[in-house]
Amino acid sequence: MFLKEYISDVYGAVKSMAIGMKRTLYYFTHHQEIITQQYPDNRDTLVLPERFRGEVVMAHDEKNEHRCTGCTACELACPNGTIKIITKFDISPEGKKKKAIDKFIYHLELCTMCNLCIEACPTNAIHMAQTFEHSVFDRAQLTKVLNKPGSKLQEGVE
């Protein structure tokens, strides 16, 4: 009786191991199952989903105009103090003073890509870009000014 148990023990153990070895041998011989992505090489063909949150950017059209009114909704929505908006007063041709952004400062090093600023923006001025290779040698390079120099507010955006 004891011997029977002993032998069935050994048999069961060997069988279970053989099943596992069969599985690994299957993968050893079936190279089409390999899932490695050769990242830096496939950079050209790498497509990230359009919703991927890489960094905050501000869209400019061909006339170098953006849609940011400087309402600071994004600045308030940001949990980390990533965004700092410096406003100035533009003087329109009619001599009216009008609030506009001077600098839209974005601290990439503080950003957690939570998307709250994009959600908060009433004019869709900013969106998330699909870039992800953010490494730089100097931390100062991570502080970015999102509005291009000389850009101004698009017509009709309030």
């Binding site: 690994t24 993968y27 050893f28 190279h31 199952e33 390999i34 899932i35 490695t36 050769q38």
Partner: peptide, 13 residues
């Protein structure tokens, strides 16, 4: 290489 192929990887390349 053996490890890599069993682990559905490419291994050193």
């Amino acid at each position: 290489k053996v490890a890599a192929y069993m682990q559905i990887r490419l291994g050193p390349n």
